[in-house]
Amino acid sequence: MAKNNNEVPINGLYDDEGRIFEEPAVDGPAPRGAVDNAPQGEQAEVSLSKEELTALCKESVCPGCDVFKEAEGIRLRALADSENVKKRLLRETEEMKKYAGESILADLLPILDNLDLALAHTDNLSPECKNFVVGVDMTRKIFLDTIRNHGLEAVQATRGVEFDPEIHEAVGTVQDPALEDNRVAQVVQNGYRLKGRLLRPAKVMVNKP
């Protein structure tokens, strides 16, 4: 039936032709395909704690399977490598502290050599010069005691001891019937150790009868 032109549409439910508007449903499930039309990049963010993530991993991987065993082996090897690196760094740090003054003490050795050389030529001196020699000898002793406090010690190199290539450096050979073969016949330059480490070998003449 045609709508009377004098009638006013109730709440806007009729159009000019007298047809009823269909109001969209407010409640109820969303039309099919509405979820599919959502942007592809938008996904729900999942936030897990470290403990929850660990538990999830244990649930996903069986402790008895090969994948779990391989992952556990990799983890243990990484821990072992980390401990080895830590120990090596600590060892290198301690060694660096121990031998920190090595280069300085090595530069001071020529001074000690010159004092030894001066004292080695003191024969047939006048009384005045002998007093000077006494002063040089006292200076040498004070200097030697000072560097000994830093861990420096002389290498054993005296006439008659057996030649040791680890602490002696042969600079020549001599023939001395009074000594056995491969014995130190003369010390040319004293050698020194620093806290057990060879700082400079003793230069010696070796007997070769």
Rank of each mutant, 00 (worst) to 15 (best):
D15T: 09
F143W: 07
R159P: 06
E70T: 14
P201Y: 10
S47H: 09
R183G: 02
L56H: 10
S49L: 01
R32E: 14
P24W: 01
C65V: 02
F68W: 14
E72I: 00
A80E: 15
D181M: 03
E166F: 08
G101H: 07
I147R: 05
R183T: 12
S82I: 00
E70M: 10
A106L: 15
L105C: 05
V133R: 04
T146G: 10
G18N: 11
P165L: 00
D113P: 07
A2P: 12
P127Y: 01
A25N: 09
I104P: 01
G33M: 04
E92T: 05
L56F: 09
Q156Y: 02
F132G: 14
R88S: 11
N190W: 03
S103F: 04
L48K: 14
I111E: 15
S60Y: 10
V26L: 15
T139M: 09
G196F: 02
N114E: 14
G64P: 00
V204F: 03
N131W: 01
L119Y: 11
N207V: 05
L90Q: 13
F143E: 05
P63L: 00
D36F: 02
E180N: 11
D145Y: 00
Q40F: 05
I20L: 13
N207E: 13
L199A: 03
A157L: 04
D27K: 06
M138V: 06
T173A: 08
Q156K: 12
L112F: 06
S103A: 13
Y99P: 12
V187C: 06
R197T: 07
S126Q: 06
R159K: 13
I10R: 03
A30R: 13
N131L: 08
A170Y: 01
I167K: 13
A178M: 04
L125H: 07
R183H: 03
L144V: 15
A80W: 02
N11I: 00
D36E: 15
G160Q: 03
